[in-house]
Each structure stands twice: as C-alpha cells, then as structure tokens.
Design a protein around this nucleic acid. Structure first.
Lengths: 150, 150
DNA sequence: CAAACATTGTTATATTCCATAGCATTGGCT
DNA sequence: AGCCAATGCTATGGAATATAACAATGTTTG
C-alpha cells in the first residue's frame, strides 16, 4: 500500500476540450499568429497591417471602406490602421476620382519595397507551416476545410 | 468607346490573402466563435468560461493555476473568470488539501446542472459544424491538421 | 533552524482588438 | 430644394491579454 502523498500533480484530463472544434481552431490560430508576431517583430508589422498592404497592392486606388470591408474590419477601426501605415510612409490617401469624400489608397514606392521584404519573410513562414502540415496536399485540404467553416 | 464611368465598384482581388494560412485560420475561428457567442448569448456563457467549466468538471479539486495553465490563460486573468463563475454559483473555491495558498476548484450542483445544459446546446452546434464540414472523416482530418499547427 | 527562494492567488495597470454612436462633409435621388 | 445614404473620422466602452508587484505560504538550502 502507500499511495504517493507527495504533491501528485498529475496531468489534467483534457478530453472534453479536445473534442471542441472552436477550441482547437483557436489554439491553432493563436499559435500561428504568435509565430507571425515573432517573425515580424523587428519589421513592426502586425497581421492586420500585412493584409492591408497586400490588398492595397492588388487593388490600388480603392476606397478605405472597400478595403476595410473585404478584410472584415470596421471602417472606424480601419482609420487608425491606415494612418499608422501612412505615417510610416507606406501608403498614400489620394483624393478619389469622382468622390470628394473618399480616399483612394495607394502604396508608395517605400511601401512597395517594404511589402516585398515582408512577402519574402512571410514566404519562409508559410514554408515552415507547410512542412509542419506535411505537404501541399495537407495544406490544401486544410484550407478547403477552413473555407467550409467561414 | 465609352467606358462605364458610373461608380464601377467591382469586386476586389483577394488572391493574396487566400494564400495565407494564418488569415484563413483567423477567419474560420472568428466565424465559429461568432456562432458560439450567438448560441450562448442567453446563457451568458463565453467560450473561455465554457472551457473552464468543462475542465473543472473533468478535474475536480485542482488548483486555479493548474486549470489556467492547461487552458493557456494567465493566472492573473484567470482570477476574474473564476470569480464571475463563482458569483453565479457555478463553482466553489475550497481550501486546498495540503496547501493553504491554493484554491481547489469544484463545480457546485448548480454548476453541474448548468454545464449539462450548455453541453446539450453545444452538442447541437458541433453537429451543425460537422455537417458544414461534410462528415466525420472531414472533421477528424481537420482536427488532426490543426494539431500539427499547435 | 534560519535565510533565501519559489509558488499561489490577487490587485492594478497598460495594450490591443473590436464594436457602437455620433458627426461633418459629400453624394445620390426624387 | 430636400431627404437620405455613404464616407471618413473621433470618441468611447468592452473584452482579451500581458506585465509588475504584493502578501501569504510553501520549499530548499546554507
């Protein structure tokens, strides 16, 4: 006999949470974002900012609200984002063609350059994630499954 | 000639973001959490709170820090969570057996009852997600892939 | 044993993200 | 002209998260 009375700090049972899709999704997303923050710490680039730069690069001249909507960001909160990126010289808010209310968003030369560097860095990160997932097939499957939840 | 000069608000190009794993993960996670918040609005239960109740139910008598660690919650922030659930009568903080600093967490009868109701509600939600994913096989595959990212 | 150190729960605080309300300016429509 | 919608913006609050510091207690070490 003689149970071990010394601080038996066993591992916890976690079966209940492992069955929850939302919980697992959150953990995975947090892990990926955490890595993003590390990788882009010295560039001082946040995930949302990166997505903004990408979208403007592919859609120059669009209005703030259009970009914000596409990213699921409230236009009120988008203002701060854009101003910060503008303050760093990465984008311009030009007067929109036929609408004096709207700002047409464009990347500056500096912004294009910065985005190129970010893209390279991000490419490496995606490559790491790819190898974690075990190949292109797994990655594509994951993306397809995620789409069904969105 | 004659391009259409009337506000041509075409769809934006989003290829750049669709290739980003983290972005897609975030959107899916947000979508699932959004639904959770809707489903549990009248029960006034947040995702984190639900996970706390589940974990205590499976591991009664554990210390706050143990539960918090398992969920990736800082113990400082965990205090508020626990106090709120205690204020609603769902759990108790009893004196831990051999440690006068620690609180041993236990569900109350009311807590068990509440958790049962939450579980039932959550079961329905998972069932919906399952059908969105297209079956058990897809769900299991998704969970496996998510694990490789965590 | 006494001293040094670690852990536990807690408070306070700052930051970031996200949502809502309201506003001035401008545009579109009737 | 008059009404309503859209656009960018400010202000503000809530929620999640991170850190620092603290008192009480436990653990380890000289």
């Amino acid at each position: 006999m003689g149970e071990d009375l010394t601080n038996q700090s066993d591992a916890l049972r976690t079966e209940s949470t492992t069955g929850i899709l939302g919980y697992r999704l959150r953990r995975a997303q947090l892990s990926v974002f955490q890595r993003f923050l590390q990788v882009f710490e010295e560039m001082r680039l946040r995930p949302a900012e990166y997505s903004v730069l990408l979208l403007i690069d592919d859609n120059p001249g669009r209005k703030q609200t259009e970009i914000a909507d596409a990213l699921g960001i409230k236009r009120a909160n988008f203002v701060t984002l854009v101003h910060a990126l503008q303050a760093r010289g990465f984008l311009e808010r030009r007067a929109a063609a036929g609408d004096r209310r709207a700002n047409a968003l464009h990347l500056t030369g500096e912004g294009v350059q910065f985005l190129a560097a970010a893209r390279a860095r991000h490419e490496d990160m995606e490559q790491q994630l790819l190898s974690q997932l075990g190949g292109e097939a797994s990655r594509n499957q994951l993306l397809a499954l995620l789409d069904r939840l969105s």
